[in-house]
């Protein structure tokens, strides 16, 4: 399955998913409310570095994360410098990047399956409002299974149109892709019904 998870054995990897979500969100929140000053820029950056070091994810991964955010950094900073003083521009950019990379620790250290389980358990709270956690988990599982199937259908549609010499566009790609996808949805609905989902 497609995933952003990085296998590892550090304590953050082993920590249960639920508390990990809360802990990381707390840090993200704390970073987000820092004022726009040089000092908070330093605190934000140091915070992110500390998080990556103590969780044993390491500086290499932190660097990789920041590189993947380069466009956000460039656009955010470039735009801020025009309207705000340098201090605010640097602090705001650092704060946003620090919040993003700390939040990323969750998926780097937790398998999707474990997060799904934690999510389903968390939804139990809402069951008294008529929400059925099992049904929600089912929709999520069906969606996860369907992404690679549709990706393959898209490749099929593209190849079929190329074979006919058509250029890829709305008429030759989007519509046929949607029709096969919606047909797939109807077949899937039948399969769910046949297997006892009402």
């Amino acid at each position: 399955m497609l995933t952003l998870y990085r296998p590892g054995t550090g304590w953050l990897h082993r920590a249960p998913a639920g508390p990990k979500v809360f802990g990381l969100l707390l840090i993200v929140l704390a970073v987000s409310i820092l004022p726009s000053t040089w000092l908070s820029a330093a605190i934000g950056a140091a915070g992110a570095v500390v998080c990556y070091l103590v969780s044993r994810i390491g500086m290499v991964e932190l660097g990789r994360q920041i590189v993947s955010l380069r466009w956000i950094v460039v656009v955010t900073f470039g735009f801020q410098v025009i309207f705000l003083p340098m201090e605010s521009a640097v602090a705001n950019t650092t704060r946003v990047v620090a919040a993003i990379v700390v939040a990323a620790l969750l998926v780097l250290t937790t398998r999707v399956g474990d997060l799904l389980d934690a999510f389903e358990r968390g939804l139990g709270v809402f069951s008294r409002f008529g929400l059925d956690p099992e049904r929600v988990a089912l929709v999520l599982a069906v969606a996860i299974t369907t992404v690679p199937v549709l990706a393959r259908l898209a490749v099929g549609v593209r190849e079929a149109q190329r074979a006919r010499g058509a250029r890829l566009g709305v008429r030759s790609f989007v519509i046929p892709f949607l029709v096969v996808s919606l047909k797939h949805a109807d077949d899937l609905g039948d399969a769910l019904t046949a297997r006892g989902v009402v």
Partner: peptide, 17 residues
């Protein structure tokens, strides 16, 4: 909040689309 099998399939498939 009840959604039936057809709804489940369509909602999931559109997320995937």
């Amino acid at each position: 909040w009840h959604i039936d099998a057809t709804d489940i399939a369509r909602i999931a498939v559109f997320a995937a689309i």
